[in-house]
Amino acid sequence: MTVKELCEKCGFTAVTLPESDREVRGCYIGDLLSWVMGRAEADEAWITIMSNINIVAVASLTDVACIILAEGVTLEDDVKNTAETKGINILMSGKAAYETALTISEFV
C-alpha cells in the first residue's frame, strides 16, 4: 500500500507528502534515533514522538517510507520545509504509538 493510501485509510493527517506513491512494507516504533538507525528497515513506516529536525535526516538515511508522528505531535515549519525538500513523507496520528501501529497493521 502507498503512503497516501495508508494515510487515507487510517485517518491520519498528511503533514508532508512529497513522495506519496512510496510503498509501505512494515513498521518500526522508536524515539532513540541511533536505535532507529540500527533497527528500522527500508520502506517501513517509522512511528515516533520525536519532532526535531534530525528525524528528517534519520528518515532519509534509513530510507523509511514515511514518518508517522504519534500522540498528535506537531512540527515546526522549518522541519516541515526540510522534509518537503528532502522528499520525506510525514503523517500525523492522534493516537499513541501502539494504537497507531495496530491501525496500520490492518493494511501493511
Binding site: 524515539d31 532513540l32 534515533l33 541511533s34 536505535w35 538507525m37 540500527g38 520525536m50 526535531n52 534530525n54 528525524i55
Partner: peptide
C-alpha cells in the same frame, strides 16, 4: 533530549 546519546553510535558504525 533530541533523541541521541543512546550509546548506539559506535556500535552502529561497526554494525
Amino acid at each position: 533530549s533530541l533523541g541521541f546519546g543512546a550509546g548506539m553510535g559506535l556500535p552502529n558504525m561497526k554494525r
